[in-house]
């Protein structure tokens, strides 16, 4: 069980995230939605260790993770993807995976074996020897998820992994995410595609102006008057 408890993050006078709390259990997909600039990315950055919160804690069960640097967060079992994929461009797809696999396997042979397994899982084995910089966006996003997987996370943070994908690619990615939930991973995703979020997530947090304004199952959230007013009312 990963938990964000009462986190506040300010940038100068601006409060990007205010007193936000969030929980993700293993085997659960949690969606974080909200208008642009609502503070979703800031919240993700706090969980991933990129930003240190001004108040509040990030917990793994009883263990306090707050303030760990990103690489320590990753070693503690929290993996994230970047909204804009950041592949190791000059390296091959396989080398990308191996670099990540080395976080959990010191030995070269083990790391290669595990990387190959992860490649198979994300369906990029065919493209293993291709330079990552030459992949199209859909594949890049898959590689991004695959690399995170290779670190054997218990909590996976997915930052708009469906954005910009075509319907086929979305199906593949959604199937992969469901499979990961099946394996007992805790998954937390920020996404704009409402229909998919509603069908994929077990629970949803709605953020507006840095504040969690609603939480619950997709049905509960979508019938919450406050959510409809603040967010769904306008655009959807």
């Amino acid at each position: 069980m990963f938990e964000v408890r009462d986190v506040t993050k300010r940038f100068g006078g601006l409060t990007a995230v205010s007193d936000a709390s969030l929980m993700v259990d293993s085997g659960e997909i949690v969606g974080v939605i909200g208008p642009n600039g609502a503070g979703k990315s800031t919240l993700f950055s706090v969980i991933a260790g990129v930003l240190r919160p001004d108040e509040g804690v990030v917990l793994d069960g009883e263990k306090v993770l707050t303030g760990l640097r990103p690489y320590r967060m990753a070693r503690a079992g929290v993996a994230r993807t970047f909204q804009t994929p950041r592949p190791f461009g000059a390296l091959t797809v396989r080398e990308n995976m191996v670099a990540a696999a080395h976080t959990v396997h010191r030995s070269t042979a083990d790391a290669h074996a595990w990387a190959a397994e992860c490649l198979e899982r994300i369906g990029l084995t065919e493209l293993a020897e291709v330079a990552a910089s030459t992949l199209p966006l859909g594949m890049r996003k898959r590689l991004e998820v695959g690399r995170a997987l290779a670190t054997k996370p218990r909590l996976l943070l997915l930052d708009e992994v469906l954005g910009g994908l075509n319907p086929n690619e979305i199906d593949t990615m959604v199937a992969l995410i469901r499979e990961l939930r099946q394996s007992g991973m805790a998954i937390c995703m920020v996404e704009h595609a409402m229909a998919i979020i509603m069908s994929l997530c077990d629970r949803i947090y709605v953020i507006d102006h840095g504040v969690v304004i609603s939480t619950g199952t997709p049905q509960e959230v979508s019938s919450d008057q406050q959510v409809i007013d603040a967010y769904l009312g306008g655009s959807v």
């Binding site: 990103p70 690489y71 080398e95 080395h102 959990v104 995170a148």
Partner: peptide, 19 residues
Amino acid sequence: SQARAVRESRDAAESLGIN
């Protein structure tokens, strides 16, 4: 492997547990 990852993108490397 880790050095080349850091060379290509320090942020991505750190996010994958590379110091």
